[in-house]
């Protein structure tokens, strides 16, 4: 169970290998990767966060997932800094005995992370305008369904 906030890109294969190295108890690994969409004339995106709280909050979200599902391993990696369309933003990996727990926990982690982890996105468009990304109501609804 671990969380990381970093500027650098991540490699999904490397992360999964590291998480499952030497484990023969795991029967299912689910990965989710969020990437930057290049729609609405997006040129780049700057991600800022609240150092310290971000890591704490991600760890709390992960602990909650571990309490709800029989996870054997999990990982959350979230990038900060300037990202371009197509770049990776976030990685969630969950591992369990059978697939259902891993699938559900991965979805839960993403839904909770989106409404609780203190990250803020600022978009720069190709015509030079900058704007803070507004929260989406659908994200709030997605998180509420787990209550």
């Amino acid at each position: 169970m671990s969380v990381r906030v970093q500027r650098e890109d991540f490699d999904i294969g490397t992360e999964v290998k590291r998480l499952t190295a030497g484990r023969t108890d795991i029967g299912a690994v689910v990965t989710f990767t969020g990437t930057v969409r290049g729609d609405d004339g997006l040129a780049s995106m700057a991600l800022e966060h609240y150092p310290g709280m971000t890591e704490d909050e991600l760890a709390r979200v992960e602990a909650e997932a571990t309490a709800r599902w029989p996870l054997l391993a999990s990982l959350i990696v979230h990038r900060v800094g300037t990202l371009a369309p197509g770049d990776n933003i976030v990685l969630v990996v969950t591992a369990s005995l059978h697939r259902q727990a891993a699938f559900e926990a991965a979805e839960f982690l993403m839904d909770y992370l989106k409404t609780r982890a203190p990250f803020w996105k600022r978009e720069l468009t190709t015509d030079g305008t900058e704007r803070w990304v507004e929260p989406r109501e659908s994200d709030d609804r997605a998180a509420v369904r787990w209550k």
Partner: peptide, 29 residues
């Protein structure tokens, strides 16, 4: 708001807070 790096509601007490962060709704992920 977050008090000492934990989310809080508007009705939460600020007594004893060392650090209070104020920010827009989060948009990560």
């Amino acid at each position: 708001a977050a008090i000492d790096k934990r989310h809080v509601q508007p009705a939460a007490s600020i007594a004893g807070a060392r650090e209070i962060a104020l920010f827009p709704p989060v948009t990560g992920g």
